[in-house]
């Protein structure tokens, strides 16, 4: 392992077949992601950001976060609180976390099971569909804060190009912003997840 690292540092690993760069990096990545996530947690505790609160699901696991999003004003979600979980990979920030709403949220870009389908949480290599520009994809400078800011703006302004919930998408389009009953789009108003 150490040898591979030395070779790599010296730029001698051009024959990648034998280069263990990625083995060593994945071990280093765990330390880096832990540090980075701890730093963000501390920052958010010290300087909370308007619109959401964030913490860990389990204090022993820095990779699993629980957030509570306040339904943005002037949207169908106003007045609601929405609980979601973020699952970070060990190689964050090179790879994006997955996000899942625990509260019911009816939205074009949120699967019916709660999975959030937003382009910034897609890896750059994922070109299967090809409809996302590179700058809309995951970047290693995204933090819990920037992810949640994007998700909050997605709540107000769905991305019409890749609906994860097609029913919600067509409903949004036909009834859209003229819909007067906010309850329709978020079922666990105010009491999101507090039942436990």
């Amino acid at each position: 392992m150490a040898n591979a690292q030395v070779l790599h540092a010296k730029g001698l690993c051009h024959s990648l077949v034998i280069c263990n760069q990625y083995v060593t990096q994945s071990i280093m990545a765990e330390g880096q992601s832990t540090l980075l996530l701890r730093k963000q947690l501390a920052d958010l505790k010290k300087n909370p950001v308007e619109g959401f609160s964030a913490g860990l699901i389990d204090d022993d696991d820095i990779y699993k976060w629980e957030v509570l999003i306040i339904g943005p004003p002037d949207t169908l979600y106003e007045g609601g609180f929405f609980k979601a979980h973020l699952y970070f990979p060990k190689d964050y920030p090179q790879k994006p976390p997955k996000m899942k709403f625990i509260s019911d949220v009816w939205h074009p870009n949120i699967e019916k099971n709660g999975d959030v389908c937003i382009s910034i949480l897609h890896e750059p290599g994922d070109d299967k569909w090809g409809y996302e520009k590179a700058n809309e994809r995951w970047l290693p400078i995204h933090t819990v804060e920037t992810i949640l800011i994007s998700v909050i703006s997605m709540l107000a302004d769905p991305n019409d190009e890749s609906p994860a919930n097609v029913d919600a998408a067509s409903e949004w389009l036909t009834c859209g912003s003229s819909l007067s009953a906010p309850g329709k789009f978020g079922e666990e108003q105010s009491a999101a997840g507090d039942d436990a």
Binding site: E111, D115, W129, D160, S170, L173, T174
Partner: peptide, 10 residues
């Protein structure tokens, strides 16, 4: 449904 369906979330 006038939604532009251009692909599902992958």
């Amino acid at each position: 449904c006038f939604w532009k369906i251009m692909g599902n979330c992958f």
